[in-house]
Nucleic acid binder design. Structure first.
Lengths: 262, 262
DNA sequence: CGGGCGTTTGAATCAAATCAATTGGAGTGG
DNA sequence: CCACTCCAATTGATTTGATTCAAACGCCCG
């Protein structure tokens, strides 16, 4: 039954193909493998667990901090944000999730979720009972591989986030954010030349640790230096002629050779 | 053989007692449970896996980015840092590990480690072969619980880091760092009134996303406002009369201008 | 059409980085 | 033991990058 999916996933796991956004180049072949791997994983989960599906609209809450942990979730389409709220009321977007990403790992340790997960677009998630998943792992060990890989990838991804926030100036951070977004789409087989940010400047700024004005200025500078273009109407659609130009822009921000623009 | 250890850990997992640094109060009872839980987990790992032990000295590398993934590590004593190096040469401390913490999760996804792990003091780590661990999980399911819990906790911990860097001004970030350090010690049953930072100002600054001068100034201000005291000789030993005073200090940094969500 | 957002942009301000000078320990070797 | 270097840390002066405050624009929708 799962024999068709299993080898594919296993094989995929053998060669590391969904390496986290390695700065340069969106290798088309690697992206295709990533895309295939996500599809295979979803197929495997669908066949072995027949998860319940939940359709979501922008703003819908998938789970909330404090809620008793019972399920993991896998995003089948759409995308959503993970929001952390500190006791003193600071609110912070700490993660973004795309198709194939898992949600809810933060809940395992303390038997309750530590963050809110909120859809940012029409999405559908698969609900995976954690106990059922563990039970199924006994019969289908590759499930465990997939689970651990997803947790591991999230750890790496979160660290990259921290790295970006800690080491990059504002403009570079915005450029790197767009690069990350485009790469995420590319890894899912979606086009990256024309992307629609479904976040406000305020949300982007929150995620990147800066104000909405700074985000706006950074985007304007990126547009002025032709690294991105805004579509005719609305400033939410962004055209990225060449993703690598974003990487170069980040480098230019970092090098003291002030080739950067004014 | 493991029947003595298993119920303890299982029981410990039932009530969420090692909640991540909840801002206020270092609840003595909770800390004691945490400490016990760490001891129980180490005992369980020692008995079921008889891991190889490695003694380390400050500066020793546990694993390096790019190295083929095969082992997870559990820190039995001492402590160490996790360092991420970007392709363009930016270096960033992305995590700190204490007794009972696991290292190497970042390696699972891509079959190679993504970071360096470096001892910052005389330490000893237990080497846990990942495949052996998975095999042992079949016979001792609580091992899997422990593993997932550790990964989950790390995800939460990394997010707290990001939150701190993104939402706190420099002084508050340093105060929160000391609070985190003291809490980490408290959860391991160590005294928190007198702590010895085994990091230079430069390392602290790197971890917190600021310069070493800013760290120094922040510490001076904390000392001036009596929240901490430097010991007579050397400025590495810090006396913290009341950990909650650090929490209050963070609040005071925030209160002038309450920037809730933008 | 007008009101409400989200966005852009400018000017003033402020926090943190940078630059620079000095102090203080730890270690070395005459 | 002192003179010496080396390096971490502190502190001050200055600059810079980001925030804040403010005004205006464009867009969507009732």
């Amino acid at each position: 039954m799962i024999s068709a999916a299993t080898p594919t996933v296993a094989n995929a796991l053998a060669n590391p193909m969904h390496a986290r956004a390695i700065a340069r180049s969106s290798d088309a072949a690697a992206n295709q493998r990533s895309s295939q791997h996500i599809a295979d994983t979803l197929k495997l989960l669908g066949e072995t667990l027949t998860p319940q599906r939940r359709v979501l609209h922008a703003g819908d809450v998938i789970y909330q901090a404090g809620e008793r942990f019972a399920n993991l979730y896998v995003l089948n389409s759409g995308f959503c944000k993970i929001v952390n709220l500190s006791v003193d009321g600071r609110e912070q977007v700490v993660g973004l999730k795309f198709r194939g990403d898992w949600l809810g790992f933060d809940g395992i340790a303390n038997a309750e979720y530590a963050c809110d997960a909120v859809a940012m677009d029409t999405s559908d998630v698969w609900v995976i009972r954690y106990d059922a998943l563990l039970a199924a792992c006994a019969a289908t060990p590759v499930l465990l591989t997939v689970l651990h890989e997803a947790m591991s990838r999230q750890i790496g991804c979160d660290r990259d986030s921290l790295m970006s926030v800690c080491t990059l100036p504002a403009d570079a951070r915005v450029a790197d954010f767009l690069r990350y977004w485009a790469d995420s789409l590319a890894k899912r087989g979606m086009r990256t030349d024309q992307i629609t940010l479904r976040m406000t400047r305020a949300e982007i700024g929150n995620y990147l640790g800066m104000t909405l004005e700074t985000v706006s200025r950074a985007l304007s500078r990126l547009a002025r230096s032709k690294v991105i273009h805004f579509s005719e109407k609305g400033r939410r659609d962004i055209h990225i002629p060449e993703v690598n130009a974003l990487v170069d822009f980040v480098q230019r921000c970092l090098s003291p050779a002030r080739t950067a623009l004014q």
